[in-house]
Design a protein around this nucleic acid. Structure first.
Lengths: 251, 251
DNA sequence: ACAAGTGTGTGCTTTGTATCACAATCGGAA
DNA sequence: TTCCGATTGTGATACAAAGCACACACTTGT
């Protein structure tokens, strides 16, 4: 039977400290050379996993015990085949004829993504945007703990935002290390963004969420992801404009 | 010479009311059947155009008159070839041996995207998140005008947020039509998101920015784009976790 | 116990996107 | 004016992702 395409599943299991004891016989670790056979999981797939987690949560709230890839696909607007293929990168989570156990798959995906414990984050830039982001409950709800906040403006030092007190930039490196901050959130003006990103990277932060409307240079080994609602709107207007031309009367 | 691959450039020029008078001889409109030859511009390309606009603005602020695709590529972390190819979907904006005129290219891209005039938007959900989004200056700065705000909670009706006054949901349809709202911003709780999206769509809105952490079903003909910083963080943790396993001592 | 039905996992095909490589073109220097 | 270095625009190519289709596994009902 099929015993060749264990590709990235192997890679993954190697990274993972605990292998799930799914009743599936073929966990043969016959990987010839784990360093050469680096068949990575595509980044797009990784980016879709949180989506799967989210809809699984929705299904769980609806009281459903099992879901099929077709049901998932309908909610996510994608083909069942793609979902199955994505999941197959990490193992065999479904049962033929039944589908996927909602709770089990959700837990597995959370574990794969590293969402089974909480991550310490620091936010830099305590202006209007920064305060809004810091007080947004969505992060804490998903186990992202904001454990520190910084701002260059000395007037803001000492101000309480949520559970933390604003610190001056000079304390960034020390605090990041002492509080084991792994994720940085940048909410400073565009002109300051790059230098803040560099400072965070220098302090050892490896993942940064950048709210500044600025195309940043990611320091080596650091993942910087931009969040910019304006960029999103700006690409939608292209399609809006096209529609207007085809039907000039707006309604 | 090359006179076959005018593909989507033709399509685009057809949509566009004003054709730029770039000194380029071959604007031959020999498209056989504009309806059959629908070689669309890839969506990924459209999504990158705002990025180009943004860095061009940066270059302009730096006082640069012309840029090469290589310079753009360095700032955007992508290959020069890709930038050139993306731009070639819409026309010939550069000059061999020189590069692109920053101001000219920026203006052209803005026009292509429909950013040469302002767009009316309405925001639904005036909770903490909604108020933060409504008062974020980034939208107005890029010509997205928030002309209406709605909330289901009657206590909020009449409250002033930025330049607008919060209205009840019952007035949504009428206001969207009378104020020519083309874009909707959804900042309601996840459980309410779908019904708000449907209401906006029914009122004629064709583009929606959804801040709710919920995988929505886009009504036919409507583009719904989700903004969720948590999803972004959740995919980054995958890589953070991998790094931790390879170097167990965090620093 | 077996047959019918359902839905997974995955090899193969198709589609789509990024990259390469080079001819065509431009501006400036000699 | 002509040559030279630079950089575009784009066909061709390589790569990656999505979708298809089916064997196989599991469940349920009889």
């Amino acid at each position: 039977m099929a015993e060749d395409k264990r590709r990235s599943a192997c890679l993954y299991h190697e990274m993972s400290p605990f292998i799930p004891d799914i009743p599936v016989g073929n966990t043969q670790m016959n990987t010839p050379n784990p360093l050469t056979l680096t068949t990575e999981v595509p980044e797009v797939v990784i980016q879709r996993l949180p989506l799967y987690v989210r809809v699984l949560t929705q299904f769980a709230q609806m009281g459903m015990g099992v879901v099929s890839s077709e049901q998932l696909g309908e909610l996510l607007q994608m083909t069942p085949a793609q979902i199955r293929k994505d999941l197959s990168y990490f193992g065999r989570f479904g049962k033929q004829g039944r589908g996927y156990n909602v709770k089990h798959l959700s837990d597995e995906l959370r574990r794969i993504l590293g969402l089974d414990f909480s991550w310490n984050t620091a936010i830099v830039g305590m202006g209007r945007l920064g305060r809004a982001v810091a007080s947004y409950p969505g992060f804490e709800r998903e186990q992202f703990r904001i454990v520190a906040a910084f701002d260059a403006n000395p007037d803001l030092t000492g101000m309480r935002v949520g559970d933390v007190v604003v610190q001056p930039m000079s304390e960034l490196t020390a605090t990041v290390r002492s509080k084991d901050v792994r994720i940085g959130i940048v909410t400073v003006p565009a002109a300051m963004a790059q230098q803040v990103i560099n400072a965070l990277a220098a302090a050892g932060v490896k993942a940064i969420l950048n709210y500044a409307p600025y195309s940043s240079q990611a320091p080596a080994g650091v993942k910087v992801l931009g969040i910019d609602p304006v960029l999103a709107l700006q690409s939608m207007t292209y399609y809006l404009k096209k529609q207007m031309v085809s039907s000039p009367v707006p309604r």
